Each structure stands twice: as structure tokens, then as C-alpha cells.
Amino acid sequence: MKVRTHHLIGSRSLKHTVTATAPAAARVVHDHFGRRPLATPEIILTTPRGLAQLAHTTQADAANIPYEKRTAVELSLTAKPRQLYEATVIAPKEGVLVLLNARKLRSSRDVALTLVHAFVHVDQLNRKGSRALRIRHLQHEFHVQALHPSQVREFARLLKEEEAEAQHLEGRLVDQMQRAA
């Protein structure tokens, strides 16, 4: 699993912890769902500002947003990047990118919880129709193609359900992962 840093200085031990923990986190999530292979995301450790920038650019590329539409648009996902532990976003070529906010990862337990949470989101992005739905929502947020208000509410409801699922599973799956180690 590829782990790299973006605009981050002095994070060698954190990168090592993430690199060592990621395969076990992916395995425990895959074993829990077991219905499909888990996509192998690229994992990037970054700052809150880097997280917002990478999420913005990567999702715009994945949704084929014209460059003139990308400026001055703040995405709902990254409106408050300092509060995020991670952001799992679609990437071009059917890829998935896991962006980790290094400022929030203070212990190995934080790393494990955040990675398990992120891999649950990776599984959710692999579900049928999920990528297409996110592209439509991104086109709405970038003012390329408007959605009906009921579609926006439905997408917000889906995101809340997915976040609740990830939060519900993270602690239990991390405990399983640590027992197996």
C-alpha cells in the first residue's frame, strides 16, 4: 500500500506507523464486509490545508470539472479541514485517495481508528452507483450541473448514513485488528 506525504515536514515516524498499520486496517475491513475486493487507495499524510487542496483538485479531476469552474468553490466535504481526521475521495481512473490530517493523528490508536474509518469509506465508494452519485454531486457543487433540492437532501442523508456506519464500525474493527496482531 502506497503512503506518501504532502507539504509535511518531520513526519517520518508517523509515516512509518501509517505504513505499518494500513494493511491490517484494510484486511479487517475487507474481512468484515467480505463481499468484494477492497480497492487499494493511495494514502497521503498532509496538513489540514493540504487535505483541502488535494481533495478539491483530485475530486475535480475525477469529475472532469472544467478548470474555469474550479476556482473559488469551497466543497462541503472540506469546508472545515482542521476538524477532519481524514477525507476519502474519488480520484481519476476509478481511483480512491485517502487523505490523512497528520495534525490529528497523535497516537497509534488514532492512526488505527482513522485508517479503519477511511477503509470503511473506501468500501462505501466501491458500492454500486456510489462513484456516479459523487460525480453528480461534485458537478452540482462546482456549479456545472445543478441538482434538484430533493437530490441534494438525499445525498446529504446518504453521507450521514455512511459516516454513521463508519463511526459505528471503527472501534470494534480496531479492537479486532489489535487482537489479531
Rank of each mutant, 00 (worst) to 15 (best):
18 V>E: 07
152 V>E: 14
110 D>E: 12
84 L>K: 00
128 K>W: 10
79 A>E: 15
36 R>Y: 09
108 S>W: 05
31 D>T: 02
159 L>R: 11
122 V>D: 00
18 V>K: 05
81 P>W: 00
117 H>E: 10
67 Y>H: 13
181 A>G: 13
177 M>D: 10
20 A>L: 05
173 L>P: 06
1 M>L: 09
39 A>N: 08
41 P>H: 11
70 R>V: 04
53 Q>R: 15
76 S>T: 05
41 P>T: 11
93 K>R: 11
114 T>M: 04
162 E>G: 09
104 K>S: 09
27 R>K: 14
66 P>S: 07
105 L>W: 08
4 R>K: 09
109 R>Y: 05
95 G>K: 01
144 V>S: 04
165 E>Q: 15
123 D>P: 00
163 E>S: 07
85 Y>W: 14
115 L>I: 02
73 V>M: 06
126 N>S: 15
133 L>K: 10
117 H>N: 08
91 A>I: 00
28 V>M: 01
70 R>H: 06
107 S>P: 03
149 P>Y: 08
105 L>H: 05
68 E>K: 12
43 I>H: 05
147 L>A: 05
101 N>V: 09
173 L>V: 02
113 L>A: 02
174 V>F: 06
125 L>P: 00
32 H>M: 06
76 S>I: 04
178 Q>G: 01
47 T>S: 15
116 V>T: 11
10 G>P: 08
169 L>M: 12
173 L>W: 04
80 K>P: 01
134 R>I: 00
26 A>R: 10
114 T>F: 05
57 T>C: 09
31 D>L: 13
122 V>I: 06
165 E>W: 01
111 V>E: 00
139 Q>K: 15
40 T>S: 12
57 T>N: 10
74 E>L: 13
72 A>P: 02
106 R>C: 11
68 E>T: 13
43 I>R: 07
162 E>C: 08
14 L>P: 03
109 R>T: 14
1 M>F: 11
85 Y>N: 12
1 M>T: 04
122 V>M: 05
81 P>I: 12
149 P>E: 11
141 E>R: 03
12 R>F: 07
98 V>Q: 06
175 D>Y: 09
81 P>V: 09
169 L>P: 10
118 A>E: 02
46 T>V: 14
105 L>E: 08
91 A>C: 01
30 H>K: 12
18 V>A: 03
52 A>N: 09
2 K>D: 12
87 A>R: 04
79 A>L: 14
59 Q>N: 14
21 T>F: 07
33 F>C: 11
109 R>P: 06
71 T>L: 12
166 A>M: 08
117 H>T: 03
117 H>K: 02
165 E>M: 14
17 T>C: 06
25 A>S: 14
102 A>K: 01
25 A>K: 00
